[in-house]
């Protein structure tokens, strides 16, 4: 198992239109600040991937038949 960390500082632009109850409707705008962590399990082999600057994974691997 290899843990590959992902640290992203993401700004999200969100918009939602909700009828939250029967007599009013809403339009919402927002921002999201978040931290995302991605972890991948490869067994029995382990990738040599490692994190740099909160880098993202390179999850894909190829094997010979």
């Amino acid at each position: 198992m290899k843990k590959i960390s992902l640290i992203i500082f993401i700004i999200l632009f969100g918009i939602s239109a909700n009828a939250k109850n029967t007599n009013s409707s809403y339009i919402s705008f927002g921002l999201m600040t978040n931290h995302m962590h991605f972890e991948e399990h490869v067994t029995p082999y382990v990738t040599d991937a490692r994190e740099i600057n909160g880098g993202y994974l390179n999850v894909f691997y190829i094997t010979h038949k």
């Binding site: 632009f13 918009i15 909700n18 109850n21 029967t22 990738t47 991937a49 490692r50 894909f60």
Partner: peptide, 24 residues
Amino acid sequence: MFIGIDTSYQSSNISYKGANQYVD
């Protein structure tokens, strides 16, 4: 009762250093 639609979009540039794995 309530109904609604929520949409969200997030985007980021990410640097990565690692390796592709090959198994014979």
